[in-house]
Simulated scan of single mutants.
Amino acid sequence: MTGAESRNPAHRPVVVALPFAGRWLARNSPARRIPSHGTDLLGERYAIDFIGVDERGRSATVRDWGTLFGTEPADRFVGFGRPILAPADGIVVAAHDGEPDHVARRSQLSLLPYALGQAARLRTGVPAIAGNHVVIALADGAGFVALVHLRSRSVRVVAGDGVRVGQPLAQCGNSGNSTQPHVHLQVMDSADLTVARGVPVAFRRYREWRRGAARPHSHDVGIPGEGAVVEAVAPGSTPDSEDGER
C-alpha cells in the first residue's frame, strides 16, 4: 500500500520492531505522556526517541568544558553512525538526505538559545525539523512509519524501494531539530508530515532495563518506559528476564 492515507481508521496500536541493534535509551516516551513530545504537530503525538548507549548506559564516554558550557562534536556520542533498521515491511514513500549533522548540546547554556529558535525552524519546513528522514508505508496498510534525524549522506533507500524488517536504511545522526544524536520514530495516518496525525505504536520482543534495575524485564509487545534502556531480542532467541514477564 503506497497511498497517501492509512487504512487504520480505529488507530489501533501499530506493532513494529525496534529499528536498531544494541542498547538504546528511551526518551519522550508515550508511556510517560501523550502527546509524547508536547505537540500533535507533524504527526508526533505518539512519537518516541532512542539515544544509543554503551553497556554502562552512557550516551557519550567523554565529558569536557563543552558538556557543561558549550557544544560537543556529534561523533563523540555512542549512537552516532549506528545502523538504523527498517522496523517493518513496506514501501519507502519518502527518503530525504543532505541535511547537515549539527553539533550536540547537553549544557543548559547551549540548549536555551537553541530552544528559542524552534519556531523559526518550524517555519522553514519539514527538513529543518526532521532532518534526514525515511517514511515507509506499512505493508499491512496500518499507517506510515517515519525515522528521522538520520546521519547526513547515510540514507540507503529511495522512494519506491521495498524494504523488509531489519533491513539497514541509514545511520543514526544529529540532523534537523536534534540536540544529541538519536533516532526519532513515529507512526502516522498520512505520508505527509505537515498534515499527518499520530497513531499509537508498540514494539515487539525486547529487553528493558528500567531505571535502577540491574536485570532486564522482557516483553513480547510493549512501549518502553521513560528513561529505560532497551535492546531488541533477536528472532529465535529466548529472552532472559528478571521476573519472566513476556
Score class of each variant (00 low, 15 high):
residue 210 R to S: 11
residue 144 F to W: 06
residue 209 W to F: 08
residue 225 G to M: 10
residue 213 A to W: 04
residue 213 A to V: 04
residue 172 C to Q: 15
residue 228 A to K: 03
residue 203 F to Y: 13
residue 196 A to F: 01
residue 222 G to S: 13
residue 170 A to W: 01
residue 221 V to P: 14
residue 175 S to L: 08
residue 153 R to K: 03
residue 216 P to M: 08
residue 198 G to Y: 08
residue 211 R to D: 13
residue 146 A to V: 08
residue 179 T to F: 03
residue 184 H to E: 10
residue 236 G to M: 06
residue 222 G to R: 11
residue 172 C to S: 15
residue 153 R to C: 00
residue 152 S to Y: 01
residue 229 V to T: 14
residue 234 A to S: 15
residue 221 V to G: 07
residue 180 Q to E: 14
residue 188 M to D: 06
residue 181 P to W: 07
residue 176 G to Q: 12
residue 189 D to E: 07
residue 204 R to E: 11
residue 174 N to Q: 12
residue 229 V to P: 10
residue 218 S to F: 12
residue 152 S to D: 05
residue 209 W to T: 01
residue 218 S to M: 11
residue 220 D to P: 08
residue 178 S to F: 08
residue 187 V to L: 10
residue 189 D to S: 03
residue 205 R to K: 01
residue 146 A to Q: 12
residue 161 D to Q: 07
residue 205 R to Y: 05
residue 153 R to W: 10
residue 160 G to H: 06
residue 193 L to P: 13
residue 195 V to F: 00
residue 228 A to H: 07
residue 213 A to F: 02
residue 179 T to I: 12
residue 155 V to W: 00
residue 162 G to V: 12
residue 197 R to N: 05
residue 173 G to W: 01
residue 144 F to D: 03
residue 198 G to P: 05
residue 186 Q to E: 08
residue 203 F to D: 05
residue 221 V to H: 04
residue 183 V to I: 15
residue 174 N to E: 10
residue 237 S to W: 10
residue 166 G to A: 05
residue 145 V to H: 03
residue 198 G to A: 00
residue 190 S to C: 08
residue 155 V to S: 01
residue 221 V to R: 14
residue 170 A to S: 04
residue 167 Q to S: 08
residue 157 V to H: 03
residue 197 R to M: 07
residue 181 P to M: 09
residue 165 V to R: 15
residue 152 S to E: 10
residue 197 R to W: 11
residue 218 S to W: 13
residue 151 R to N: 05
residue 183 V to T: 13
residue 183 V to Q: 13
residue 230 V to M: 05
residue 188 M to G: 02
residue 156 R to F: 00
residue 188 M to I: 01
residue 176 G to A: 12
residue 214 A to C: 09
residue 170 A to E: 02
residue 229 V to A: 13
residue 209 W to D: 06
residue 168 P to T: 05
residue 171 Q to S: 14
residue 239 P to F: 09
residue 159 A to P: 04
residue 152 S to H: 12
residue 174 N to G: 10
residue 212 G to P: 08
residue 233 V to P: 04
residue 177 N to E: 15
residue 176 G to S: 12
residue 179 T to Q: 03
residue 200 P to H: 06
residue 225 G to S: 14
residue 221 V to D: 10
residue 235 P to G: 14
residue 154 S to V: 02
residue 220 D to H: 13
residue 172 C to R: 06
residue 156 R to G: 00
residue 150 L to R: 02
residue 211 R to S: 15
residue 200 P to M: 04
residue 177 N to L: 14
residue 206 Y to F: 11
residue 176 G to N: 13
residue 198 G to H: 06
residue 207 R to K: 05
residue 175 S to C: 13
residue 168 P to Y: 05
residue 176 G to Y: 07
residue 159 A to L: 06
residue 235 P to D: 15
residue 164 R to N: 12
residue 188 M to Y: 07
residue 202 A to P: 04
residue 207 R to G: 06
residue 214 A to R: 08
residue 157 V to S: 06
residue 238 T to L: 14
residue 151 R to F: 00
residue 170 A to C: 01
residue 177 N to Y: 15
residue 230 V to P: 04
residue 169 L to K: 03
